[in-house]
Amino acid sequence: MARFLISDHHFGHANIIDYCDRPFSSVGEMDTTLLNRHYETVDADDLLVHLGDVAMDMSTGEDTIAYFSQLDGDLLVRGNHDVGLNPEDAPFPVVDHCTLSHDGYEFYCTHRPADVPETWDGWVLHGHHHNNDTETFPFVAHDRRRVNVSSELLDFRPLRLDALTALLDECPDGSRFRDVDAASECLDRGE
């Protein structure tokens, strides 16, 4: 059983295609691709921690529950577009934040990095900023000990937690990688 991370699927959200320059011609194509990449990556016995904004679901929570159930998700850290979801109505745990540990790393998991307590001294896993400001919020900001798991930066595939910690072990101090592809290219070159 592996643990996987991702945020900001925004299922059913037409405006996100233009807002984040997603490579999809329609919401249907986007939703199908997001689900297919999930199923290609995550096995049924794996654990999925989603860092918010499953769907554009500001009122009832029904879309969030439906899509998260299709992902067979295990834990939802609620994002700003999941506000319609009452945690008591969900058939899965819904929290505002959590912590994860793996291979000596401690991670504070939140949707918005602005919500991290000032006293937190470990790494931060977050979403919310998508691919709109990768200078400030890249996939990996080793110098700030932050990882942005917005789906656009992960090629719309959940990221294995053990693969992330292995990547962080290899990252030179102060390194910053725009997205998962840039991190792979750099490390493949031995930089």
Rank of each mutant, 00 (worst) to 15 (best):
M1Y: 15
R3S: 14
R3C: 14
L5N: 08
F11T: 02
F11Q: 07
F11N: 04
F11H: 09
H13K: 02
I16W: 02
I16E: 03
I17E: 05
D18A: 15
Y19L: 13
Y19R: 14
D21L: 13
D21M: 13
F24P: 06
F24A: 06
S26F: 01
V27N: 05
G28D: 15
E29I: 03
M30L: 08
D31H: 04
D31M: 04
L34Y: 08
L34R: 04
N36E: 15
R37S: 01
Y39E: 15
Y39W: 09
Y39G: 09
Y39F: 11
A44C: 04
A44Q: 12
D46H: 12
D46R: 07
L48R: 01
V49Q: 02
L51D: 01
G52C: 02
D53T: 05
D53R: 02
D53S: 03
A55N: 00
M56D: 11
D57V: 01
M58E: 13
S59M: 11
T60Q: 08
D63P: 06
D63E: 14
A66Y: 04
Y67W: 10
Y67A: 05
F68G: 02
L71V: 01
G73M: 02
G73K: 04
D74M: 01
D74L: 02
L75D: 09
V77R: 00
V77T: 03
N80T: 13
N80L: 06
N80G: 08
L85R: 03
N86Q: 13
P87I: 07
E88T: 15
A90C: 09
A90V: 08
A90R: 09
P91K: 13
V94G: 09
V94I: 08
V94H: 10
V95H: 11
D96V: 00
H97L: 00
T99E: 15
H102Y: 12
Y105T: 12
E106R: 14
E106K: 12
F107W: 15
Y108T: 12
T110M: 07
H111Y: 10
R112T: 07
P113V: 07
A114I: 12
D115M: 12
E118V: 06
T119G: 09
T119Q: 14
W120L: 07
W120N: 04
D121W: 04
G122V: 05
G122H: 08
G122S: 11
W123E: 10
H126M: 05
H126E: 03
G127M: 03
G127T: 04
H128G: 11
H129P: 00
H129D: 05
H130G: 13
D133V: 10
D133C: 10
E135W: 10
E135I: 11
F137R: 00
P138A: 05
F139K: 00
F139A: 00
F139S: 00
F139Y: 09
V140W: 00
V140G: 02
D143C: 12
R146Q: 12
V147I: 07
V147K: 03
V149C: 02
E152R: 03
L153K: 00
L154I: 07
D155E: 14
R157V: 04
P158F: 02
P158L: 03
D162W: 06
D162K: 12
A166T: 10
L168A: 11
L168I: 10
D169N: 13
D169K: 07
E170C: 10
C171N: 06
P172K: 13
P172L: 14
P172F: 10
G174A: 11
F177P: 05
D179Q: 06
D179P: 08
V180T: 12
V180K: 08
D181T: 15
S184M: 11
C186L: 13
G190T: 04
